[in-house]
């Protein structure tokens, strides 16, 4: 019985679900649906497409319950399934040409000093103040879309879903150092992109 304040753990529910207890699985679905929806929307760059990804992810989780052995946290296992479902969704839809974000990486002179002025370097911090909310949301999704998969996935999990670096590593099968390197690269490009957005606006 699920008494408030002593709710069963994810892992306990997953074990019951694997043994055929469907209400236990539905409890997990309800517990994670909002997080999975948010993750899917960010991974595929569209709130409209996110429900399909969430459905597919939970269906795969249900079918794969027997393979969940409790060696990792249930949440890590589920995030991995949802991340893969998002990747499959992205691959299944028409490819749009995407321009690289490399041009937004910071620039340094031959002595290794920043080429831009302090005021230019700080422009990104004013994005919310200077850019219309709707346009910022649209541009943010478009920019995250433009990241290569190898950067988008760790960036979304670490910085947008706020998972600890070690958990992101477990979801993606990467060492924490590799997660940091990829998230860092994504941040550098996106920071420059936000700077650029503000510059175009002002």
């Amino acid at each position: 019985m699920d008494v408030p304040g002593s709710e069963p753990s994810d892992e306990a529910l997953a074990a019951r679900a694997a043994a055929g207890d469907d209400p236990a699985f539905e409890t997990l679905v309800i517990r994670y649906q909002a997080r999975m929806f948010r993750l899917a929307a960010r991974m595929v760059g569209s709130e409209a497409d996110a429900p399909d990804v969430v459905q597919e992810g939970f269906l795969q989780a249900y079918r794969g319950l027997a393979s969940f052995r409790g060696e990792s946290k249930f949440s890590t296992w589920l995030y991995r399934i949802a991340t893969n479902a998002a990747l499959m969704h992205r691959r299944g839809r028409a490819r749009r040409p995407t321009e690289s974000l490399e041009e937004f990486l910071p620039r340094f002179d031959t002595d290794g000093l920043h080429c831009s002025t302090p005021a230019e370097l700080q422009l990104a911090t004013r994005a919310e103040e200077l850019i219309d909310r709707g346009r910022l949301a649209q541009s943010a999704r478009a920019a995250i879309e433009r990241l290569p998969d190898m950067y988008r996935e760790p960036f979304v999990l670490r910085d947008l879903e706020d998972l600890p670096t070690t958990d992101v590593g477990k979801v993606l099968g990467l060492e924490p150092a590799a997660v940091r390197q990829r998230v860092h690269r994504a941040r550098l490009m996106l920071r420059g992109y936000l700077n650029h957005l503000v510059t175009v606006k002002t």
Partner: peptide
């Protein structure tokens, strides 16, 4: 900024 802008 990106987290808040992409909150679905």
């Amino acid at each position: 900024i990106l987290r808040e802008a992409t909150l679905a």
